[in-house]
Simulated assay, not measured.
Amino acid sequence: MNKLLGSSLAACIVLSGCAATIAPKVDVVEPTQARPSPQAYVPANNGAIFQGAGYRPLYENPRARMVGDVITIVISESISAKQENTSTIEKKASLDASISALPLMNATQLAKLGATGSNNNKFDGTGKTSATNTFTGTITTTVVEVLPNGHLIVSGEKQIGVGQNVDILRFSGQVDPNTIQPGNSVTSTQVANVRVEQTGRGAKHDVQGIGWLARFFLSISPF
Rank of each mutant, 00 (worst) to 15 (best):
Q33F: 15
N133Y: 13
L147G: 11
T88A: 05
T179A: 12
I153R: 14
T142M: 00
L95T: 15
G127M: 00
R215L: 05
D206Y: 13
D96F: 02
T129E: 03
E77R: 11
Y59H: 06
T86A: 04
I73P: 03
N85A: 03
A101P: 02
Y41T: 07
Q198G: 04
T138Q: 11
N119T: 15
V74M: 12
A64P: 09
Y55T: 02
T141V: 14
V14I: 01
G117T: 06
E77V: 14
V146R: 09
F135N: 08
L113E: 05
V196D: 05
V67H: 08
A81G: 14
N46C: 10
H151P: 11
L9I: 10
I75N: 14
H205S: 04
I153S: 04
R35D: 09
T138G: 07
A111Y: 14
I49S: 06
K91T: 06
K204G: 10
G163W: 01
F50W: 07
D176H: 02
S7R: 00
T32K: 06
G202A: 04
S80V: 03
F50D: 05
I210M: 12
E84L: 02
T189D: 15
A97Y: 10
L147K: 13
Q190R: 10
L102G: 06
T142W: 02
S37E: 12
E157S: 07
I210E: 12
Q198S: 06
L95K: 12
Q83F: 06
F123L: 09
S8V: 12
I73V: 11
S80N: 01
V28K: 07
K82H: 15
T140W: 09
E90T: 07
V191D: 15
I13M: 08
N184L: 00
Q198C: 01
L58D: 14
G17R: 03
Q181G: 04
G47Q: 08
L95N: 04
N61H: 00
V166I: 01
I220G: 04
L218D: 08
D96N: 05
A131M: 12
Y55G: 10
Q181T: 07
T88Y: 00
E60D: 09
T21D: 00
L102H: 10
A115E: 01
A10C: 04
T116R: 14
T199V: 01
R56G: 15
T187E: 03
I49P: 07
L58F: 10
V166L: 14
N121H: 06
F217V: 01
T142R: 07
E157G: 04
N165W: 08
V74K: 08
A131D: 11
T32A: 02
M1C: 03
A81W: 11
A48I: 08
